[in-house]
Nucleic acid binder design. Structure first.
Length: 248
DNA sequence: AATGCGTCCAACCGCCCCCTA
DNA sequence: ATAGGGGGCGGTTGGACGCAT
């Protein structure tokens, strides 16, 4: 017994969307906002699966989408983020305003993969193609555990530890997401604690999350004020300079 | 003009996670 | 505590298009 289908497939259209369907979806969302995708098609008079409506809206109809070619800066940012996050397209998209995960995924597979291959870099590992597998790390991409390890190394301030992914020199600074999460100014006003690295990336309830730890510590000590000095990564620096995570 | 091939990208599929009752 | 539902995500597919032969 599998789970119940998200919609009655026999009564739904599939394939390319028509102009009329687009108009109906846009009009409905303008009037009612993004709500329950499952019930939206019926309410909007669309013979579509709710998921299909969601995808169409997010990837194509949303008014804040940036259409057109990727800039060189966007290219490089995607490459850097991919080297850090792997195929977490939604997280990568969260750092590129106006770009969708689907768009970035397609762009990666069609353009950037080839670009990296031309540079002699394996797009999956971000290592030189002729690099012997014997010398490669077990993980094909930099995992969150790897990030945690790096973060701990910073905190430990121990420069003697071995570097990961030595071929990569990531001159990357991660800033809070452009959208989706709100915090910044208000959190300072209200005294709310800035998000840790994992929360800032949109990873919910991560085991690595330091927000809850700090919050618990703060509440247990009766101290509910902002832990000033910690940035959104949960580090004591003003920002995380990924040069300190250099993988050269 | 017809055909074959490669590329691009919108859309689908199925799994997973999270929330809620 | 847990099962079920809904939403989100990543992988994959297939049709449209352009170019070469």
């Amino acid at each position: 017994m599998g789970r119940s289908p998200c919609c009655e497939k026999s009564h739904t259209n599939k394939g390319a969307w028509t102009k009329e369907e687009d108009d109906r979806l846009i009009a409905y969302i303008r009037a009612h906002g993004e709500g329950c995708w499952r019930s939206l098609p019926k309410a909007a008079g669309l013979l579509r699966c709710g998921k299909s409506c969601r995808l169409r809206w997010i990837n194509y109809l949303r008014p804040d989408l940036k259409r057109g070619n990727f800039t060189e800066e966007e290219d490089e940012l995607v490459i850097k983020l991919h080297s850090l996050l792997g195929n977490k397209w939604s997280l990568i998209a969260g750092r590129l305003p106006g770009r969708t995960d689907n768009e970035i995924k397609n762009y990666w597979n069609t353009h950037i993969r080839r670009k990296l291959l031309n540079r002699g870099i394996d797009p999956a590992t971000h290592r030189p193609l002729n690099d012997s597998p014997v010398h490669q790390d077990v993980s094909s991409t930099i995992s969150f555990n790897g990030v945690k390890q790096e973060k701990n190394e910073i905190i430990d301030n121990n420069p003697s530890k071995e570097e990961r992914c030595p071929d990569l020199n990531l001159d990357l600074r991660i800033s809070p997401p452009y959208h989706r999460t709100q915090q910044p100014a208000d959190s300072f006003k209200t005294g709310a604690k800035p998000l840790c690295f994992f929360c800032s990336l949109g990873v919910k309830n991560s085991k690595e999350c330091t927000c809850t730890i700090d919050t618990a510590a703060a509440s247990s000590s009766g101290n509910n004020t902002n832990n000033s000095g910690y940035d959104f990564l949960g580090l004591k620096t003003g920002f995380l300079d990924f040069r300190s995570l250099e993988m050269k």
